[in-house]
Design a protein around this nucleic acid. Structure first.
Length: 245
RNA sequence: GCGUGCUAG
């Protein structure tokens, strides 16, 4: 199974789904049946190429066959539905997990949380956060970042700043992406001066700007007509190990 | 051998 699945993965990665299905045919003829990892590869490829309805069909086929989809399978489908704005359908699948005794893990929750925030469904997002703690799942960097990103989207910059401070004090996992999200929100909601000051705050806390950090701030400075400041920032990039792209 | 987050184009 591993050999065939690896080949199938190869075809899927380059978008040759039909060829991958042919390998599946060869596989069956060799009396080797596909397992969930194999199916997950197909689902992945189908989802990535936007063929959600085909993916959903395969998903239901897998279930009908008596294979119990794994957390990975469910999560992929949930993610794909979310990405295409089909949050309600994603919720349906999400709820199906409980019924099928395959409980959602942190990745699944993070994905749902992110999609709810993107759709500005903050009430539902809060309920989801409650469920995460009820299930005694420990939030990770993705969770924190998603929550902070959601608050940014809701225009709650003050609360975001409080939360950042709190997380720093508690030593919660944060990374450069978290900071970049806040930086971007500041650029849009408070202007480039605030954002510029925020960069200094970030560096004070031991985080190193990356290419996205620079691009975000440069974009904002240029939009505000602050070309000199932008140039000053631009020339700092190489010595911080960031080559402009 | 499989799943989640940031800017711009």
């Amino acid at each position: 199974v591993v050999t065939f699945t690896t080949i199938i993965d190869g075809f899927c990665k380059v978008g040759k789904i039909k060829e991958a299905f042919m390998i599946l045919g060869v596989m069956v003829k060799s009396h080797c049946s596909a397992d969930l990892v194999t199916y997950n590869k197909f689902l992945d490829a189908l989802c990535k190429s936007g063929k959600i309805s085909t993916a959903l069909k395969l998903f239901y086929y897998i279930k009908k066959k008596g294979c119990a989809p794994t957390v990975y399978t469910y999560t992929k489908i949930v993610h794909s539905l979310c990405k295409h704005g089909k949050i309600d359908e994603a919720c349906t699948i999400f709820d199906m997990m409980v019924k099928n005794h395959c409980s959602a893990d942190l990745v699944t929750y993070n994905i749902m949380l992110d999609s709810l925030c993107r759709a500005m469904k903050f009430l539902e997002a809060c309920q989801l956060i409650d469920n995460i703690s009820k299930k005694r799942l420990l939030p990770d960097v993705y969770t924190y970042t998603t929550v902070i990103g959601g608050l940014c989207k809701a225009g709650q910059i003050v609360m975001v700043m409080k939360m950042l401070k709190d997380h720093l004090a508690k030593g919660c996992a944060l990374d450069i992406v978290t900071w970049n999200i806040v930086l971007n929100a500041l650029c849009q909601q408070s202007g480039s001066n605030e954002a510029y000051a925020f960069l200094a705050y970030m560096v004070c806390n031991g985080f190193c700007p990356n290419l996205v950090t620079y691009n975000t701030l440069l974009n904002s400075l240029c939009k505000d007509g602050k070309i000199q400041q932008a140039i000053r920032l631009f020339v700092q990039m190489p010595k911080n190990g960031c080559n402009p792209d």
